[in-house]
Design a protein around this nucleic acid. Structure first.
Length: 405
DNA sequence: TCTGGGGTCCTGCGCCCG
DNA sequence: TCTGCGGGCGCAGGACCC
């Protein structure tokens, strides 16, 4: 794989003709953002994590990774692997702000930018090359320079003919590098890789594929699609076969409508008290409602998620007559679902989600019942107050601590 | 490893309707 | 009137992604 890697300042790049897809991925994003103001920690093992008894690692610096620390690992495990690990609490708002700046650089180069998360995006630079008088590889190098110069963080870039290969390439480029996969060498690049490298193959599917004797992408590519369908299901089978043969016709989509908005919370200690769960549902419904309103969205289906002490997880959903963005309505449905479906016992996590979203452009929504007070007006007024005076300015009385009351 | 929080997508099932 | 069938929808659960 080393031959695809482009070293900084290299004058001769691999053949990038027809490689119009770039995948850009920030290196250890949350940690990198934090280290901008704490450069003295640059060579230390650092993680960003809530640090609570049930927290996991949100991001790990490369020095931390040398101790086996990985993101999504329980913080307690990380600390065991690396006792002198430095833990930084997440800074609200910081990562979104850096992300917007970085995405802004991408959009100056091409309008075809598809963010996948705060720290990565696909770019289709096919149309921009002539206008900018450059090549995909040179553009990738320019992006890396600008992100570092303007935002003080490093990123890795994958350049390829299709999305999924570009994404694999950026993963191999990490940290702080670039990998170009010439279009003509796509299969040569893919086939030695393990099946787990395929987009959509996690632990379970990998195990399933291995049981059939399929270990590498070459094995998948050589298997008749009908056999893959029988083994992995129709959609997944077709998807894997296409990827393994280098086919990925998904375009870079700049606009993608959100499908659901949710919030969830894991308790430090399991909760048995139903009233306390109801209160948490109110807190979460407030957050979901505020997010919906801030994005001009409403949803028709309210679902709750309950994870019990033994990690068994259930979800229960209800579709209501008219779409809502009102926390009070969301909360009412969530509480009903909890009462009707969740057995008593230790609860570890509880969550609320609203699905079936639309923009609510069809005019004033119908209230659940016509004689309801104008809760939506009240919540919108509270949004404005929070914007002005901070998030603690207005909360339902039931969410105040006894001292505040 | 004792497992967060934000999401998306797929599958399978039951129900309703024509 | 009964039965079979297929499509659409709602729902639950699971796998996966970052």
């Amino acid at each position: 794989m080393a031959r695809y890697r482009v070293t900084t300042g290299a004058t001769e790049l691999p053949d990038d003709t027809g490689c119009s897809i770039l995948h850009v991925d920030m290196d250890a994003f949350f940690v990198s953002c934090e280290l901008r103001t704490r450069p003295e920690l640059a060579s230390q093992p650092v993680v960003v994590s809530g640090g609570g008894p049930r927290s996991v690692v949100a991001a790990a610096s490369y020095p931390a990774r040398r101790f086996g620390v990985r993101s999504a690992m329980p913080f307690a495990t990380a600390k065991r692997l690396c006792p002198h690990l430095v833990c930084i609490q997440p800074t609200p708002g910081l990562y979104g702000e850096v992300s917007r700046g970085v995405m802004g650089i991408f959009r100056q180069l091409t309008p075809l930018v598809e963010p996948l998360s705060l720290d990565e995006a696909f770019l289709d630079v096919g149309g921009a090359l002539r206008r900018l008088g450059t090549t995909p590889g040179a553009l990738g190098a320019r992006i890396r320079e600008r992100v570092a110069a303007e935002h003080g963080i490093t990123c890795s870039v994958g350049v390829a003919k299709v999305k999924f290969v570009a994404k694999l390439a950026s993963g191999m480029a990490k940290p702080d590098g670039m990998v170009i996969v010439p279009a003509a060498e796509t299969l040569e690049f893919l086939h030695p890789l393990p099946v787990s490298a395929l987009w959509g193959v996690g632990k379970r599917t990998e195990e399933q594929l291995r049981q059939h004797g399929w270990h590498t992408i070459a094995d998948i590519a050589a298997t008749p699609p009908a056999r893959l369908r029988r083994a992995a299901g129709r959609a997944v089978g077709d998807h894997l076969w296409a990827l393994a043969n280098g086919h990925d016709d998904r375009a870079v989509e700049p606009e993608s409508a959100e499908k659901s908005i949710g919030a969830e919370h894991t308790f430090d200690v399991d909760v048995f008290n139903r009233a306390e769960l109801g209160l948490e549902l109110l807190r979460l419904s407030e957050r979901v409602g505020a997010t919906l309103r801030s994005r001009g969205l409403r949803g028709r289906t309210v679902s709750i998620k309950v994870r019990f002490g033994d990690f068994r997880t259930i979800t229960r959903a209800r579709t209501v007559l008219s779409a809502t963005d009102v926390a009070r309505d969301i909360h009412r449905t969530a509480v009903e679902l909890l009462a009707e479906h969740a057995p008593t016992g230790a609860v570890r996590l509880i969550g609320v989600r609203v699905e079936g979203l639309d923009t609510g452009d069809e005019g004033e929504q119908l209230s659940f019942t016509n004689d309801e007070p104008r809760w939506r007006d009240a919540e919108v007024a509270a949004d404005v107050a929070r914007l002005k005076f901070g998030s603690a300015a207005i909360r339902p009385a039931s969410l105040l601590s006894p001292r505040e009351e």
